[in-house]
Simulated scan of single mutants.
Amino acid sequence: MTRRGFLALLALLPTSGAAASTLAVPQLSPPNAPLNVYHLGHSLVGADMPSMLAQLAGEGHRWNSQLGSGTSLKQHWEPAEPILDFDLVNTPPTYRNAREAIGAGTYDAVILTEMVELRDAIRYFGAAKYLRRWANLARDANAETRLYLYETWHPLDDPDGWLHRIDTDLDRLWLGKLAGSDSRRNPKHPLYLIPGGQVMAAVARAAEAGNIDGLTKRGQLFAKTPSGEQDMIHFNDLGAYVVALTHYAVLYHRSPVGLPHQLLRADGHTADALTPTAARQVQNIVWQVVTSLPRTGVTP
């Protein structure tokens, strides 16, 4: 990338990065072997994104998950709480009961995320308390397990503005009200950040500025409903690829530039793909965002 291109890219990065870096976290060394990863979350994790991550990481990467639709960390924790679409989205061989899996201490990395609307999760569903409970379950099981908070996003039609929410929610909500108490109690073993929302925003800004081959608007990263309308929150194959690249860069401390861009969905079908030029442009953006946020634990 030329210096001019690099400076143009910096201008498109989300504006929350400087503030998000104020909490010092211990330095992480890059892993020296493929990882065994557990994902706990909802449909903004899904099956395709972890499957793409495994393809990007290569032989030896393993993963399991417990998911739901719009599921909070409280619902995952409390046995009496219903999990919408549980039987639909949790199937062998990737499904593993979250309490059993995280409590076993056999995962190199545990990735947690909270439902959105995040304001509601914090106010009504005890999000900070249940984030601490899940993180402590992992810490108590294995002091070497790396813990991550996967930052997502709110709907494209959010009344406050999709980009505005991503820019302002990272520090105030994700790292503040959600993860702040856990960070203060566990400064030596914190939750590191997988900045999914920050990267999606940066890619959207670059696309809308004409800087990504074949992409011109944020909606191209998101799915369509069965009736053909714009899905306002769930990613399509292109968005899943962007988020998988972000997970790869954070978990493995490696630049995603040059990784394959033609991947398979979890069901084995060929995923829609960016052009080779667009893939490299997006990969560069991912690495710039990930390395601009010290909370990821990744250095350039």
Rank of each mutant, 00 (worst) to 15 (best):
E208N: 03
A202H: 00
L88R: 15
A101T: 03
P159Y: 07
W174P: 01
K129T: 15
D87K: 13
N211I: 00
Q66P: 08
A19I: 05
D48G: 01
L193V: 11
Y124G: 00
L84W: 09
D231L: 03
F86M: 07
D108N: 14
M1R: 10
T2R: 12
P14L: 12
T2H: 09
G268A: 04
N64E: 06
L293E: 14
L53E: 13
T94E: 11
L10S: 03
L23C: 02
F125T: 07
A47P: 00
G228F: 10
L170I: 12
Q66C: 10
A135P: 06
D87E: 15
P14M: 09
L215D: 00
D140Q: 14
T216S: 01
D48N: 15
P190V: 10
T113Y: 02
I212M: 03
R295N: 02
H39L: 14
W162D: 01
L56D: 08
G68W: 01
G161W: 08
L147F: 09
I102G: 06
R133A: 12
A135V: 05
Q220I: 01
F6G: 00
D160P: 00
T113C: 11
T106Q: 15
F6K: 10
L251Q: 05
T299Y: 12
A223N: 13
A273H: 14
L35R: 11
N142T: 05
A128V: 02
T246D: 05
T277R: 14
A266C: 04
N284F: 06
K224E: 13
G239Y: 02
G126W: 08
A128T: 13
P256A: 06
S72N: 10
E59M: 07
P159M: 06
P26N: 11
R4F: 08
H261Q: 10
T152E: 06
N236R: 04
V116D: 07
Y148I: 07
V298N: 04
H261P: 00
T15A: 12
